[in-house]
């Protein structure tokens, strides 16, 4: 019966993986327009950081660093592949190749969230250690620019930094992908038990 087949197929779908895959694709679109972390200094400076789109704004003019731009493109492609492959896996979780697809897809959002947060923290720490610039990771701080960048002109700025909602979205996608991995283990164990019976 086609309806029974459909029900059977629907019951086999890894819904956590499906939701994770969809959310991973949504994260790409959201991150292109909204940063994961933003640093603002009055009207003058705006730093938008996300693995998909990192840019620097100076008095309304935006610019990118080519190397970071390349890494951003890499991240977009990684998330895109991860999302699509997670969707293919979650619709066919019992196929022989399913485990390979899942192994490829589930880690990417998690690694991206961890790497981004670590890189940001490292950058903030490096700015403090190398240039004595007290750039905040979250909140507001008064930052004095190093004299070597300003030819002795004293420039003090009030910097405000905050994590933005797309980071939460990416974290949710990562959690769903991890859950899909755990759920896959359970379902495969169940299938093996049923087959043995």
């Amino acid at each position: 019966m086609p309806l029974e087949q459909l029900n059977k197929h629907l019951s086999q779908i890894n819904w956590f993986g499906f939701a994770g895959g969809i959310l991973t694709l949504i994260v790409i679109i959201a991150s292109l327009y909204y940063p994961w972390w933003q640093l603002t200094i009055g009207d003058a400076v705006k730093v938008n950081v996300s693995p998909m789109n990192t840019n620097f704004g100076l008095f309304g003019t935006n610019f990118k660093i080519p190397l970071i731009y390349a890494l951003n493109i890499g991240s977009i492609l990684t998330f895109l592949c991860s999302g699509i492959i997670m969707l293919i896996y979650s619709i066919n979780p019992t196929k022989p190749y399913a485990k390979d697809l899942l192994d490829f897809a589930w880690k990417k959002p998690l690694y991206s969230v961890i790497t981004s947060t670590l890189c940001l923290s490292l950058m903030v720490l490096l700015a403090q250690a190398l240039f004595k610039m007290n750039i905040p990771l979250i909140g507001t701080a008064t930052v004095s620019l190093p004299a070597q960048f300003t030819e002795g002109v004293a420039i003090t700025v009030l910097a405000t930094a905050a994590f933005q909602w797309p980071l939460g979205l990416a974290l949710t996608a990562a959690i769903l992908c991890i859950t899909a991995r755990i759920y896959h283990k359970k379902t495969t164990q169940q299938t093996t038990t049923n087959n043995n019976k």
């Binding site: 003058a44 002109v153 420039i155 700025v157 910097a159």
Partner: peptide
């Protein structure tokens, strides 16, 4: 002092 930015320099600049 611009919004959130303060610039101070001596006369040589």
């Amino acid at each position: 002092e611009l919004r959130d930015i303060k610039i101070e320099m001596d006369h040589r600049k």
